[in-house]
Amino acid sequence: MATMDALQPGAQPGVLIANLRYARRAEVARFQRADLVFNGVDHGGLSYEVRVFLNVPTATGATPRDPTKGYAGRFVVFGHGGCFGELGHCDVPSVRRDPTDLRPGHPLVPQTKIVTITTALERILDKRGTLETVALVPWIYNGFRRKNGCKPGVFKMSDVTLRTYG
């Protein structure tokens, strides 16, 4: 697991590098599936996608989404666009433990996003033997497309974990 704080800055402002090492171990059978699980993903601002590259620490917003060159997929966040209420309206309350509180969760409870990287990870392991870095390239969607791009600040989460299934 890599927490947001533990990520390193990448080759362009906004890009983040997670050091998630994974090597094929002879004693473990091949996985059927591998997922990157992003927890605590913020969706309160503009919409954005996060492109995932394996072992491409130089990735930027201009890096082609080419599966033969480390591109592993993306997740897309449909943004809430900021707050439309009074002060405190968009503050997410901490988890409720009162069993008689039947109200639905707050709309801005952070989300979990999953990118399935089975084929991309297999490819890395076949080629180099070890996954070393996961580059996360956020791409912001604006109302005006010409203003879309790789920018810092919008993509926030708590942590990312590599999960494999036998």
């Binding site: 503009l46 919409s47 997740f75 897309v76 449909f78 943004g79 809430h80 666009g81 969607y141 109302g143």
Partner: peptide, 19 residues
Amino acid sequence: NVHNAVHGWVGGTMTLVPV
């Protein structure tokens, strides 16, 4: 996730949950 990507693809109004 596919759904969200199409919202972003259309651009403009479709990119934002409230509108």
